[in-house]
């Protein structure tokens, strides 16, 4: 991790953060994602995963360390640029979909960055197409199923044409069919993806590489199947494989 390449899509350097009440959540997080890479971020509840995510586009400001997107450091002067380039998909889709219709919600992001007219129409249509939700454009968000909400939430981020997409627990509250559709959508994405999840089979299926965050630090970084197969590492970080899952079967052919 100390030898990060300069071309990293997103790089976190020695990130520290404490909430105003003094609770220290992040204690020197360091990680880097290569462009186009799909990486899972695993870890128990309270490990600081969501807090880390909120740093990646400058919603929270670290007490020490920095986040670099491409060549740009996340600071007050570059907030808007960074927010366009790093898209966050929040854990609860009801928080993400706040506009009266799906179309307007997907248009919200690009419109904030000055996209309008035909270009806006095109962006929204393409984003909805990419998640298989073109037919939902005129629906109010609260009429959608959980899986539809989740895919539309991803479209709201895609419409900004970001370089990095960060998803916080995207499979929570999805039924198996919704989870399958989500996996199909994510596997087609060409952007750099950071997938924060408890869902180990989902991480194993989609992400060749994983990071484990615990006690505010990255404690492991490697091939997903290798991390999951390490029983000692898993137990130490309160992670548990579902019954019957054999991660070594996901080992790439040598």
């Amino acid at each position: 991790m100390s030898t990060v390449s300069r071309a990293a899509a997103i790089r976190v350097e020695d990130l520290w953060f404490a909430y105003p009440d003094g609770t220290e959540v992040l204690r020197g997080v360091a990680l880097a994602l290569e462009p186009g890479e799909r990486v899972a971020l695993l870890g128990p509840n309270g490990a600081g995963k969501t807090t880390l995510v909120l740093h990646l586009n400058g919603i929270l400001t670290p007490s020490r360390g920095r986040v670099v997107v491409g060549e740009t450091t996340v600071d007050d002067a570059h907030l808007r640029e960074v927010r366009r380039r790093v898209g966050l998909v929040f854990q609860d889709a009801d928080d993400q979909l706040f506009m009266p219709t799906v179309w307007r919600d997907v248009a919200f992001g690009p419109a904030n960055f000055g996209v309008e007219g035909e270009e806006l129409e095109h962006r929204v249509a393409a984003a909805l197409q990419a998640v298989g939700a073109a037919h939902l454009a005129q629906r109010p968000p609260h009429h959608l199923s959980g899986g539809e909400k989740r895919r539309v939430a991803i479209a709201t981020v895609l419409a900004m044409e970001p370089e990095v997409i960060v998803l916080d627990e995207p499979t929570s509250s999805l039924d198996p069919a919704g989870r399958r559709e989500l996996a199909d959508v994510l596997s087609r994405l060409t952007q750099t993806v950071l997938l924060v999840t408890h869902d180990l089979p989902f991480a194993l299926e989609l992400c060749p590489r994983s990071l484990i965050l615990n006690h505010g630090r990255v404690v492991a970084d490697g091939a997903t199947w290798e991390l999951l197969a390490d029983a000692e590492l898993m137990a130490a970080n309160r992670l548990e494989l579902p019954f019957g899952l054999d991660p070594t079967r996901a080992r790439p052919p040598a």
Binding site: L54, N57, I59, R80, R83, R84, G87, L88, F90, D92, D95, Q96, F98, F108, G109, N112, F113, T156, V157, M160
Partner: peptide, 12 residues
Amino acid sequence: RVYQAMLSRGYD
């Protein structure tokens, strides 16, 4: 959280 989601998509 809604406000954070809005900020994330460039709300000013």
